[in-house]
Design a protein around this nucleic acid. Structure first.
Lengths: 218, 218
DNA sequence: CTCGAACCGGATAGATCTATCCGGTTACTG
DNA sequence: CAGTAACCGGATAGATCTATCCGGTTCGAG
């Protein structure tokens, strides 16, 4: 986040900013939220001072990551709304958002630690809420989903997909699709054949379970 | 965890041990894994020294919590196996385990940080795996589930329910049942009417979303 | 090409957390 | 009911993390 800047960042500064954010993503996903800023700086290949100059404290870094995430989800909602039929629009959003979430191992942690009451974050959150409400409302009016489907189900869906994806991505990066299919059909949505998946690569997943990957302790 | 003790713990020591474990549950659930042992001791109402005497380090405490959890899930599997029909047995386990998980906000954190390769933990894990394999195998043979249902789906189910439950329990403690129903029907399991739930208390949940509760940052 | 503003990175002070030690207290055995 | 082993809790040393400061370097405007 940080204040409005008149001048854009100098090229090297902007480059380092990106390096830091990507490094934070990796370390948050791998080691949970409690990672020394020293380690983030080292992973990014910059000095500690550079991290603190760009992000006053850890919270600012997390908030920046949050904004980045929500910008993406807003874009996905925009794209979905371009679909001609209401059912297709909701389905498009659910699948696109799920795919994004499945690849973003750090999302839960960013969400859990972001300051949602801060000015830009709360605004984006409300805006995304309106988009989702609209998608759901139109799909329901068109009879494309169970008539008790509601916006909360969209978030629940994404949290559930995320939980599965975080624990399988290393061994079967597409396993989440199986559960997306189960959930969506349970919600009464017709999946186009293209979105279907064969049974996941069974043995691999089973052997890796129950083995939650994130966050080594010490 | 601790060695075999000849003598059982003295009464006050055992009482404090329980207090510490329950305090750890609460704090892990509320603040994530990175909670000072000082705070655990304070939440439990004992001195720091008492925590360290009973649990050599944080890892030992987590491992003890892990054992406790798996003991419970093994018991649930035992109970389920007492059901007369294979489909009922699997369903019984899924619902009982889900209910337990839904109330246990610290489970994911305990699992994520437990040392699964340690002697007692890995044994329990394997044993639970055998029980689950058996439940699934018999239910499938009896045609009570989709024929591509596999053991990994049991764990995925519980992780998904947990993800939803952790984010709704404060506002709608039974909301997870809605998603359990969707998932189970998607897996081809017939729910007895008694296990069904009405639509969840809509407005409450929607207003609390997307708002992940755990783990304040600083 | 030259110059200055902006940026870089590491050394380090101050704060926080982990783990230990020991004098005082309490529960169980005979 | 008396003696003792076991337990209690807090003070504290050592380790780790956060955040700052400043001498040296780099980008980009003119």
């Amino acid at each position: 986040m940080s204040q409005h800047r008149e001048r854009p960042l100098r090229a090297d500064a902007e480059r380092n900013r990106q390096l830091i954010m990507r490094a934070a993503d990796r370390l948050f996903a791998r080691r949970g939220t409690t990672v020394p800023l020293n380690d983030i700086a080292h992973e990014a290949g910059v000095g500690v001072g550079t991290v603190y100059r760009r992000f006053p404290d850890l919270q600012a870094l997390i908030d920046a990551l949050f904004i980045e995430r929500f910008t993406t989800f807003l874009r996905l909602a925009d794209e979905a709304e371009r679909q001609p039929d209401p059912g297709g629009a909701l389905l498009h959003y659910l699948l696109a958002a799920a795919q994004w979430r499945a690849r973003d191992q750090a999302l839960d942690i960013v969400l859990a630690h972001a300051d949602l009451d801060a000015k830009p974050a709360s605004g984006m959150r409300d805006e995304l809420g309106r988009h989702v409400d609209g998608l759901v409302e139109r799909a329901r009016a068109a009879g494309a989903v169970r008539d008790d489907f509601e916006s909360a189900d969209v978030y629940a869906f994404l949290y559930m997909i995320g939980a599965v994806a975080d624990r399988t991505h290393a061994v079967a990066p597409d396993a989440w699709r199986r559960y997306a299919e189960v959930l969506l059909s349970g919600f009464g949505m017709d999946l186009p054949a293209a979105a279907r998946t064969s049974a996941m690569t069974d043995g691999q997943v089973r052997r890796s379970w129950p083995e939650p990957p994130p966050a080594p302790p010490s």
